[in-house]
Each structure stands twice: as C-alpha cells, then as structure tokens.
Design a protein around this nucleic acid. Sequence first.
DNA 1: CCGACAGTTCGAGATTTTTCGAACTTATCT
DNA 2: AGATAAGTTCGAAAAATCTCGAACTGTCGG
Lengths: 119, 119
Amino acid sequence: MTPDIAPIPHLDLPHPEPCDLKLTQVLFALSDPERLAIVRQLAFGPLDMAQCHLSDASTPKSTKSHLMKVLREAGIIRNEASGRGRRLTLRRDDLDARFPGLLACVLASVLADTHDGAP
Amino acid sequence: MTPDIAPIPHLDLPHPEPCDLKLTQVLFALSDPERLAIVRQLAFGPLDMAQCHLSDASTPKSTKSHLMKVLREAGIIRNEASGRGRRLTLRRDDLDARFPGLLACVLASVLADTHDGAP
DNA sequence: CCGACAGTTCGAGATTTTTCGAACTTATCT
DNA sequence: AGATAAGTTCGAAAAATCTCGAACTGTCGG
C-alpha cells in the first residue's frame, strides 16, 4: 500500500473559523476552573505554553495538552508552533466578533475573583 | 426513633445565595443547548414549567426536571411552587450582581441566533 | 375522597469527559 | 549525529453527566 497522503505531523493544528464558533462549545470550554485559569493568564498577552502554568505543577503534559485542545477547538485560543515550543494566544477579536462582550465580562469576573483562598 | 425534622417534600427547593454563585458552574449550566433554550424562553419573563418547552416534546418529565435542577443549582433560575405546577424565573438581578453583563451578552448571542435551522 | 395532573427524587445503565502513560515528532544544543 | 526539551496523539481506565422509568408528593376538579 502506498503511504498515501502523508499522516501529517502535529504542526499547525486545526482552528475553527470565527463564524463556526459555537456558543455552547465556548461556554463549555470556559466552564472548567483549570481552563478558565489558562484563559486568565492569556488575558495579558500571548504566552509560550511552557510559561503557562496549571494549578498543579505536576500535571502530566498530556493532560495539559488536552486542556489546550478543548480551548483551541472551541475557538478560544490559538496554538501555533514557535521554535521548539508553542505559542498560545487568546482569540479576543474572533470571540468578540461572534459573541460581543462575552469574553470581556467573563474575564472581568475571573479577574475580580481576587485569587484568594483563605483569609 | 423520632421522625426528626420531617423529610420535607419537594416544595420550596434549595436555591444558592447570590454570593455563592460560581462562575464555572454558571457557564457549565449554560453550555448545554437544551438548557440554553430554556433560559432563552425565560428571557421574556417568568413561565410556568408546563409552558416551557424542550426541543423534543416527547422528552420524559424526569429529564426536563433534571435540566431545571442544573440551572437552579447554578443560580440561573428560580423554581417555585405555584398552584399545581411550578413557576420558573430567570435570576437576572442576582446573576448581574455577581457576574455583570454575563447573562446579557449570552442572551444577546442566543437571541441573535435567529432560530433558523435550514434556509 | 378519588383520580388526573404536575413535578421531584432515586437508581441504574448509557454516554461523555477527564486523566495519564507510552510512543512519536520536531527543534535546539553540543 | 545524538541527546534533550516541548508537545501532540492514542488508548484505556476513571470520573462525571445524562437519560429514563418507577415511585412518591402535592394540587385541583368532580
């Protein structure tokens, strides 16, 4: 058998078009604390994946990768190859075009939650 | 044994306090198409549960009840006994106090989605 | 009071998500 | 080239959700 159309490695991953973003999918992606924390970190600008931390630093790479996948497939973040690693960017404009104000007030609420645990 | 504090039937169900609303829980509750459709119907005012329709009219009562429970426990709707049935109300003010603007733009996006299926 | 409504709760099975290790790919460094 | 670092993908097990029937509670009409 011919190897066919080449398996294509995992460089440029698929990202949904702005018009294809689904509200329910976006809300679902944001409904997980860990993913929401990732979005919060990206609110201040793009980040290399290695610089983007999870609440538990000992979480396996595959789990982190999966969290990113859910966010990417929902159209919330862009995940591009950059050198040896990956650069993560919040798709602010695309989200705002499709769901005006949504990201802004989610971020406002998240950031207002003054990272406190116990007084 | 004494019957104790009376098992309490399913009249007044528990509703979270405004300050106890969790953003992730709210987003999760809204992330389901069926639940979002319910919220859309309540956007124009309270409704008796019997008047609140699901996409599939043949869905069992217990399933409908469960959808309402998720919305109620997230603090999105109020579910009060009213005569033989139940009255559902969107907790607009409470949601807006805790997550300013969130419900508004979710509703705006949902309502903009001009209930069309196929052209 | 009895029966028809209207809904909630419980439990079990079905479906979906999450988690994590192993194998693999690419880029950088020596 | 070989080694290492950084991630993705795959598969399977674990955990969370959903779906639905059965049993139950309360209300309203006769």
